[in-house]
């Protein structure tokens, strides 16, 4: 369990941001932490959405996967760019 910095970008927003997440977070939680800076602040919520989808380096990530596992496998570095979008 450790704080981990990412660059999170929510599709359609105007900037990516520094997001503090935890290595124990699932990618569903990571997505939520990125989305809270956009949805309801700079973009409206989409009532049709069923959650969020996370993409890293063009790969769609399983929301149940733990961030720490991907960090341990050196697939995610500090300040890695993570894209989030509404899932339909």
């Amino acid at each position: 369990m450790a704080l981990f910095p990412l660059y999170g970008y929510f599709k359609g927003d105007y900037i990516p941001r520094l997001i503090a997440v935890d290595t124990d977070d699932t990618f569903a939680q990571v997505a939520g932490k990125i989305a809270e800076h956009t949805v309801g602040r700079t973009l409206p919520n989409d009532p049709r959405a069923k959650g969020y989808v996370v993409t890293i380096d063009d790969e769609i990530i399983d929301p149940a996967e733990i961030l720490g596992a991907r960090v341990a496998a050196q697939k995610v570095q500090p300040l890695h760019w993570v894209d989030v979008n509404f899932a339909y």
Binding site: Y7, D13, Y14, I15, P16, R17, L18, I19, A20
Partner: peptide
């Protein structure tokens, strides 16, 4: 803003701020 914006390592300006929201790319 509740957290820092990602910043460019050359211009030191926010990433995404040179064009519009449809052209933000890594």
């Amino acid at each position: 803003g509740a957290t820092l914006p990602a910043l460019c390592n050359v211009t030191h300006l926010p990433i995404g701020a040179h064009w519009d929201r449809h052209h933000v790319s890594k």
